[in-house]
């Protein structure tokens, strides 16, 4: 691992005057952000506030219109993609693959992939590794994807709406998987609008509105300062 990855002084994720526009409309507008290591951070905001765009920029799927975004002090490239474990809000595995082939795929490309951990989690969920993905239900596919993503020992986990489309029992499983699998020097950035479900696992949160950060705080500070839960605070801030 490179020296800059191990340096505790370098934030996991930094954004400096980060702007992303599609056409003339900015989706993110001059965002400044620093995320330290060892935190579970909620990226919260209504639809269209720029959550997914911020995550895609950090994952290296989009290039900034202006400003910069740095992962472990480095602009997104093939090196940072090895440090980031990204879970998009959609199924990105080919339906023609077998479950065992998805494990081979991750083991081939990610040096930090822990196959034993993945197989263990899959067996606990009763996922047969010989079946093709097209035969799995949507919920099982989402769980499999989360298992693959959380079986990496990454520095930054980017989870875009990981609990958006699943039932409450599955939500519980997903959140416990996240908590029990991330290392103490890693950061988890979770984008969601289901705040009450994830509030218990969050250390910090960011509120996004119209492409800008309107609040960044630890959960404890917010509760102390405003005397309400993050969920209630969210409703207050985004009251229509």
């Amino acid at each position: 691992m490179n020296a800059y990855n191990e340096s505790a002084s370098i934030p996991i994720l930094t954004a400096n005057m980060l702007t992303k526009s599609y056409g003339s409309a900015p989706v993110l507008n001059c965002v400044n952000l620093t995320l330290p290591a060892g935190r579970i951070i909620g990226l919260l905001g209504p639809n269209g506030s720029g959550k997914t765009t911020l995550i895609k920029l950090a994952a290296g799927l989009l290039t900034p219109t202006s400003g910069e975004i740095l992962v472990c002090g480095r602009a997104p490239d093939e090196v940072t993609r090895g440090l980031v474990s990204y879970l998009p809000e959609r199924t990105y595995l080919s339906p023609s693959m077998r479950v065992s082939e998805t494990l081979d795929y991750f083991a081939d490309f990610y040096a930090d992939f822990d196959r034993v951990r993945a197989v263990d989690m899959m067996s606990r969920l009763g996922i047969d590794d010989s079946v093709r993905l097209r035969t799995l239900s949507k919920g099982t596919k989402e769980k499999l994807q989360l298992i693959l993503v959380m079986s990496r020992n990454a520095r930054l986990y980017l989870l875009d709406e990981p609990i958006g489309g699943v039932d409450p029992a599955a939500r519980e499983y997903i959140l416990s998987t996240i908590i029990s699998n991330y290392a103490s020097d890693s950061t988890v950035l979770i984008s969601t609008h289901l705040i009450s479900d994830i509030e218990a696992v969050l250390d910090e949160f960011l509120f996004l509105r119209n492409g800008g950060i309107v609040m960044q705080s630890t959960v404890d500070d917010a509760r102390e300062r405003y005397g309400m839960s993050v969920d209630a605070l969210f409703r207050e801030v985004y009251r229509c």
């Binding site: 993609r81 090895g82 990105y92």
Partner: peptide, 12 residues
């Protein structure tokens, strides 16, 4: 959707 995986692989 598969591009979300392909373009986030640690390769050039």
């Amino acid at each position: 959707d598969e591009g979300y995986l392909t373009f986030t692989l640690p390769v050039k």
